[in-house]
Design a protein around this nucleic acid. Structure first.
Lengths: 329, 329
DNA sequence: TACTACGTTGTTAGCGCTAACATTGGGGTG
DNA sequence: CACCCCAATGTTAGCGCTAACAACGTAGTA
């Protein structure tokens, strides 16, 4: 920086002013300084800068299940949004989710000096852990809403599930089952709730509920159980992979989809459009989710306010080929 | 830090020594200082530290296709390995891969002051870009081997593909097709090469080659083409998703797998075990890949040596239900 | 006893930057 | 013409840490 100042014939402080966009710099010096910066290929030292400003321009992202479809897409979006805002992204992936591992990761973030943290851990009950840690840093939790000591951004999965089930009802289905995700996930809970609500509002009896683990294999097994035990004309699957398993189970047994049974998934992952038949599903806008997260976090960073900001992103039903009116027999 | 020193009754420098594991500290003071650190909940300031040491303890990971199976798993492993070594991980995801976007991301990493960079961009031709940027930083590129100005770690996909095809040959197949990934990916190229080599070594004619785009949809279309035009008893698919598409195409047409056609995939993704029948595929050890990457990078950081270190991780054939000897008719 | 050597601790300077204050000079006002 | 004001720039201090050196005391040696 001293070199740049010398070359431009000004003081290092003036260079700093140029770099920080300070308005009190004459057009002439501005030009000279910028010229010198380019000529020397000068780049500001982040460590020194953050030592004095107490800002690292880094946000920490705490994630689990990083290789799953939803989380990895959210992570991608998060990272894009952060970069656009001029922030670096530091990630910590959790192998297993316990209060201890969460705390450890958070302390690491504190050590690193991140400005704020985004938590992308879809397990129930982590929010208390987050609140109890009480780091003096803005935290935005994905999936957390209604927690007033924490800001949250969520895809309104209950609404998404409700949309899906309401659509099935509108087609004339009266016996609608649900293959849920594993217990302990916020997503699982929300989707079950949406399914229940839609049925209750339509005055329909609650259909059978199966528990899967998000994998196609568990969907397949649920499909076999359904064929053996249950009497349904439509099934709402907790995600597209399990829907794929269902499709496979039914296909193998000669049950026609959507002729005999309708199936709806959740996620709209890449392959769903290529299922046979193409899967009717609920699309989540991860892009928007990520952007909202980052924007809320940045607002807290600038404004100083803490917690309580909640945003819900509404998902969208994508009707494709696995849904039809129930057959009359 | 000054506070800790005061509480322990020593100088701040002694505290620093304790923190850095300097041996020249008496047991008594060591204990006192550690006590004071715990009591005050003191944590060292990273910015100040890296200002003087010129080390940020951060490694940058440049990634593209972050939401795909391979990349996201590698990223996960990378991050774990880095954390175990006490490093932070900063990520930059590329939307589109051009020399410009790569350069921009790299400059961002330089600004951030990362100690080293791992590149996880599976496109051909990016290595020249990396070399030409000539940042004075250790760079380890995943998928790059034989580049002597750059260190590389790769899964030996050629060997994996060869294993798969050799296995088909050992079953007695003589007409073996390949559904490749999109052009421009290192992986695509390597897998094609392995397939060709195995056929050539066995003295078999080169079977038909189809180009997909990694998606199940493209595999499905390739399957339809194959049924229409080609005469093969086995197909080696460039990844598991495309293998899934093939399975679907054949299943729909009443062609039995593995009775009429054998299919082998590549990746061993989560769902492959649940395909119908379960997919024979090639498993890549992303865990090891990630660890190797980080270790090579750290070795360069400590040793000062640059480039040239190459490691190949050998994948493993997983035989499941989609392969059998060719039928005799 | 006097000297050296070394283990232990303290002191000083400076990493590269920004905040706060000090200084300069040109234009408007009475 | 003297005054003040403010925009433009320079100067100084200090963020929290580590490296380098200085100082101290104790034990071993002659």
């Amino acid at each position: 920086m001293e070199d740049v100042a010398k070359l431009a014939g000004v003081s290092h402080q003036t260079v700093s002013r140029v770099l920080n966009g300070n308005p009190n710099v004459s057009a002439r010096t501005l030009e000279k300084v910028q010229g010198a910066i380019v000529e020397l290929g000068y780049r500001r030292n982040t460590a020194a800068r953050s030592l004095v400003t107490r800002r690292s321009n880094t946000i920490g992202v705490l994630a689990s299940e990083m290789s799953q479809y939803g989380p990895s897409n959210t992570l991608l979006a998060l990272q894009q949004a952060a970069r656009e805002a001029g922030y670096f992204v530091s990630i910590a992936g959790l192998d297993d989710v316990t209060p201890e591992t969460i705390e450890e990761a958070m302390l690491r973030f504190m050590d690193q000096g991140v400005d704020g943290i985004i938590v992308q851990v879809p397990h129930s009950g982590i929010f208390e852990t987050l609140v109890s840690l009480n780091l003096g840093l803005p935290v935005v939790a994905i999936g957390a809403t209604g927690e007033n000591r924490l800001s949250g951004v969520a895809i309104d999965q209950t609404a998404g599930a409700r949309q899906a089930v309401e659509y099935l009802i509108s087609l004339g289905h009266q016996h609608i089952g649900h293959v849920a995700g594993p217990a302990g996930w916020v997503d699982t809970q929300a989707r079950i709730e949406g399914w229940r609500t839609a049925l209750a509002q339509a005055g329909l009896p609650e259909g059978p509920l199966f528990e899967g683990d998000w994998s196609a294999g568990s969907g397949f097994r649920a499909g076999q159980e359904i064929m053996r035990d249950a009497h349904v004309s439509a099934i709402f699957a907790g995600n597209d992979q399990m829907a794929l398993g269902l499709l496979r189970a039914f296909g193998e047994a000669g049950i026609n989809v959507p002729g005999d049974v309708s199936v709806v998934g959740f996620d709209d992952w890449l392959e769903s459009e290529f299922f046979l038949p193409p899967l009717t599903t609920v699309r989540q806008n991860f892009q928007e989710l990520g952007q909202r997260c980052v924007h809320i976090l940045l607002a807290e960073l600038d404004g100083g306010a803490r917690g309580g900001a909640d945003v819900e992103v509404v998902p969208e039903l994508v009707v494709r080929g696995t849904t039809a009116s129930p057959s009359l027999n």
